[in-house]
Simulated scan of single mutants.
Amino acid sequence: MTVRVPHRSLRGLSAVAALLAIGAVGCSEVSDAVDSTKDTAKKAARQQSVFSLDIGDCYNPNGKAEGTAFAVEVVPCTEAHVGQVVGEFAIDKGQEYPGDDEISAIADTRCPVEAQKYAPDTWALPKGAALFYYTPTKESWLTGDRAVSCTYTAEKGKFSGSLNTAKSFKPEQITYLEGSNAVYEALWANQPEKDTVEDDLAGYKAQAKAVAAALDAHVKGLAGIEGAEVGKLRSTLTKAAGDWKNAADAADADAFYIAYDPAFTGIDPNKSVAARKELGLATTVPADEAEVWAG
């Protein structure tokens, strides 16, 4: 399997379990060597094939997070670790290997959805946690490997504790999170390939249509949640939905730009902080999202 993350080079990782030998050294050095050997033996005993990873498993990769991996060190989630498996699914693409690009595209689409079932509030994730995924390689595909394991991985350092929070939320919190997550998923999953509207007006309009539909569903869900701040957010998103619909119906690039500016501003995550606080959810906008809307 290969661990993949969008827009990154993924090469050069191998899993090797090393054994240390103790030579004729001083007492303190012997003690240090014994401790080191115990740690190595413990790590070796925890090695598990990437093919057998399950949802909920916390692990440390044997090297960098990215690249080709054969085994990882599975550890208790109470210990510091680099990643946790938060979702999985099988690729149904027949006998022929579909290629790296298509498998990555499938994982890009499915993993955010699967991960949000396990950890619905992405704002509450540990700082620096990013969504990675293990996918079949061309070689493992020939052996029947079709599994994709979605993981949250610390881009720097480690984190402790399980990310499994799905059962800890109240119904109104889940309703909010599902609607909000769907809006941003519609935005990012439908990114046009071209950099400018002039080069792909149809693509940008399709994206706008998807976001508008997700906003309509989100606004409908918010109607059943009490709270002054939730009500204010619902009004804001209702207007934003109208702006996205205008963008989707734009006759030309100029009309699209006119509609897009208030549409994009209307879903600025900062506008939802007060409602999130009222609902008892995390209120710190993730750094990557804050950067996007900061311009």
Results as ranks from 00 to 15, higher is better:
Gly221Ala: 09
Ala105Asp: 02
Arg46Ser: 08
Ala90Asn: 04
Pro262Ala: 11
Ser104Tyr: 05
Leu131Ser: 03
Cys111Ala: 02
Val50Asp: 05
Pro126Phe: 15
Gln47Ser: 08
Thr78Glu: 14
Leu13His: 06
Val25Ile: 10
Lys194Asn: 15
Glu172Tyr: 14
Glu88Ala: 01
Ala45Trp: 04
Val72Arg: 08
Glu139Ile: 05
Cys111Met: 06
Ala124Leu: 01
Ser235Leu: 13
Thr265Pro: 00
Phe89Trp: 06
Val34Met: 09
Ala186Leu: 03
Glu29Trp: 00
Leu237Asp: 14
Gly56Ala: 12
Lys194Glu: 15
Gln84Phe: 07
Gly87His: 10
Pro6Trp: 15
Lys194Gln: 15
Asn270Ala: 12
Ser28Arg: 05
Trp244Ser: 10
Val183Met: 09
Asp249Ser: 11
Val219Asn: 13
Asn60Phe: 01
Tyr59Gln: 05
Leu20Lys: 14
Asp32Tyr: 05
Ala240Glu: 10
Asp268Ile: 10
Ser14His: 14
Ala115Ser: 11
Gly26Asp: 12
Thr143Tyr: 12
Ala274Arg: 09
Gly128Ile: 02
Ala71Arg: 11
Ala208Phe: 00
Asp145Met: 01
Glu226Leu: 04
Val82Ser: 02
Ser14Glu: 15
Gln84Leu: 03
Leu19Arg: 15
Glu29Cys: 11
Arg4Glu: 03
Asp32Cys: 06
Ala274Ile: 07
Thr143Gly: 09
Ala282Ile: 11
Glu178Val: 12
Ile106His: 10
Asn62Phe: 10
